[in-house]
């Protein structure tokens, strides 16, 4: 085979691999949306109906408990995690820490970033055992917040790092304090920061392993922060292997909601990133 034939062959292979990846993605999204939408259209009430007492056996009622659980676990977790993550990134990128300490922290952040979610789940579970508490909504929030923290910090840190130094220099030159300068830096990197927070949110809403043992897999509506709860991914996981066809159908409906939520989040992050680009120097003015 001469070198030009080889070049063509590699071109085909690269295109073929990409086509494969894209078609797999379209297939998975398509199957979920198609099946989920069909189930939701024939019986839309399952979204707003709380589960009955015999939910896991006879599929009484709907899965409102999982939707409520997802919302009340992931949103507070994201807020906590976002506060911490943005602060950590500011600490690492502004002039608060020495370079050596930043390097060390970055190493630990990388390790945390690669840590399997199940480890976070087990860690929070050991805390539950140690304190003698029960699995509940609150511990679900803690687990998801710990899980999201390294993801958000990584994105935010990268965004702040790519913010131009001129912002910082100009701000210091006008006599600002470090805090005020940090505010300006964060603002100039806002598109990246927001994208990072939304990516963390999307990962948090889709993760099951962290909340599997910490939120309590309950099949009732959560009554308070110390009550057991469940989230959409756990519901899908539990229902998927059930012999009851109606429960499997509800798993598809839940997947539909989850996929729509994730797609909407990606869309929102793109739109917001475009809108906040005007804070960045040289960004689009609107």
């Amino acid at each position: 085979m001469d070198r030009y034939a080889k070049q063509r062959l590699v071109g085909y292979l690269a295109r073929g691999a990409t086509a494969l990846v894209v078609s797999v993605m379209l297939f998975v999204v398509g199957v979920t949306i198609f099946r989920g939408a069909r189930i939701l259209l024939t019986n839309p009430s399952i979204v707003v109906t709380p589960p009955g007492t015999q939910y896991m056996l006879r599929a009484e009622g709907g899965f409102l408990h999982a939707i409520v659980g997802s919302i009340f676990i992931v949103i507070p977790a994201t807020i906590v995690s976002m506060t911490l993550a943005v602060s950590t990134a500011v600490y690492l990128q502004s002039d608060y820490s020495s370079e050596r300490f930043s390097d060390l922290t970055n190493m630990f952040l990388n390790v945390l970033w690669g840590t399997p979610p199940i480890v976070y789940g087990v860690f929070v579970l050991t805390i539950i055992f140690a304190t003698g508490a029960r699995q509940s909504l609150l511990f679900g929030i803690i687990a998801i917040a710990i899980f999201q923290y390294p993801i958000m910090t990584r994105y935010t840190d990268e965004a702040l790092r790519s913010a131009p130094d001129t912002v910082k220099e100009a701000s210091y030159g006008l006599g600002s304090t470090r805090f005020e300068t940090a505010q300006m830096t964060v603002r100039s990197a806002l598109p990246g920061v927001i994208a990072g927070v939304i990516m963390g949110f999307a990962r948090g809403i889709g993760d099951a392993a962290t909340v599997l043992f910490t939120a309590g897999r309950s099949t009732n509506m959560p009554a308070g922060p110390m009550d057991g709860a469940t989230t959409l991914p756990i519901l899908i996981y539990e229902n998927a292997t059930s012999p009851n066809d109606e429960l499997v159908a509800q798993a598809y409906a839940a997947s539909f909601l989850l996929i729509v939520a994730v797609l909407a989040l990606i869309g929102i992050s793109k739109v917001l990133a475009g809108r906040f680009a005007r804070y960045a120097p040289g960004g689009r003015h609107s």
């Binding site: 894209v22 993605m25 996929i259």
Partner: peptide
């Protein structure tokens, strides 16, 4: 597309895989 694929929760892949 690849960003979307990376963001899909893995439990959904599991569900579709059980079917297909």
């Amino acid at each position: 597309f690849i960003d979307v694929l990376a963001a899909i929760p893995s439990v959904i892949f599991g569900l579709v895989a059980l079917l297909v």
